[in-house]
């Protein structure tokens, strides 16, 4: 594909343009090395399908999700209102996020504070692009017949009822999608939600991500597909715990899609 150019809102606005959709990268997608790769793959998909998009770049800030789940409503609303000012300033109407936590927060909690946008998660965008025929599975790595299990992120699945979009992105690749016993509405958390990502777990006899990866290993899948940068971290740590890094890959739906399309 042609060289990747990542447009910013500031740049667009300076040229008097408005993109169709804002790509909200998120903190993990911006700073976490592993998640940065996913961010770039989402950009590649956006560019490949010719969508008019932009990112906020350095104007983006934390949505306030971890503060809110941890009980710091002040900090959350400070972040939310500052972000809403920026978003409304650019006249944003539609947002795609790379993270289910950003997705949930902007979609559900910004509306009450003056931020009304159509918000979708990147797996939903991928599903739409597949449905519209803009994304196929050609020109890249073949996932045909490959055993893949999908881990439902809580803030995409139970929190917002998005179960089918990520699965559809896998089905089009003719993969062998194997479900864990605890999937969809019964999905087990990776252990990072509710601000747990930023603290040590409380005393217990096992780490939640270990419990989850044990279940994933039980499916005999070669790829654990994820849709959330925090799940990504937790699942990778779990795979490391079982010393299975050589046999099992943890990949985001966006990465799998980008690879399948040779992006």
């Amino acid at each position: 594909m042609s060289e990747l150019h990542i447009p910013t809102m500031a740049e667009m606005a300076a040229a008097g343009n408005e993109p169709d959709i804002l790509f909200w990268v998120g903190c993990a997608g911006s700073f976490d090395e592993r998640a940065q790769k996913i961010t770039r793959d989402i950009c590649k998909i956006l560019q490949h399908t010719g969508i008019s998009y932009a990112v906020l770049g350095t104007e983006e800030s934390c949505t306030g999700d971890p503060a809110k789940r941890a009980g710091n409503e002040f900090l959350f609303q400070m972040q939310a209102m500052t972000n809403i000012q920026v978003l409304n300033g650019y006249n944003i109407k539609k947002i795609v996020t790379g993270c289910p936590h950003c997705f949930n927060t902007i979609k559900n909690e910004y509306a009450g504070l003056g931020g009304n946008y159509e918000v979708i998660h990147h797996t939903q965008l991928i599903q739409q692009l597949i449905d519209e025929g803009k994304l196929k599975a050609e020109g890249g790595e073949s996932f045909k017949g490959k055993k893949i299990t999908y881990h439902d992120p809580c803030y995409l699945g139970r929190a917002n009822g998005v179960y089918e979009a990520p699965r559809k992105a896998l089905e089009i690749l003719d993969t062998e999608l194997v479900e864990m016993k605890r999937c969809k509405t019964n999905g087990l958390c990776c252990g990072a939600g509710g601000a747990q990502m930023f603290k040590e777990p409380e005393k217990g006899n096992k780490d939640i991500n270990v419990e989850r990866v044990e279940e994933a290993i039980g499916t005999d899948a070669k790829v654990i597909a994820a849709g959330c940068p925090f799940c990504m971290t937790m699942l990778r740590d779990g795979v490391k715990h079982f010393e299975k890094e050589q046999e099992i890959q943890v990949l985001d739906i966006a990465e799998i899609t980008a690879r399948a399309n040779g992006l």
């Binding site: 789940r69 809580c154 139970r158 958390c189 252990g191 939600g193 217990g204």
Partner: peptide, 11 residues
Amino acid sequence: WACTSCNACTE
């Protein structure tokens, strides 16, 4: 502080 806010309980 042990809660992951995963909503498994409410489901």
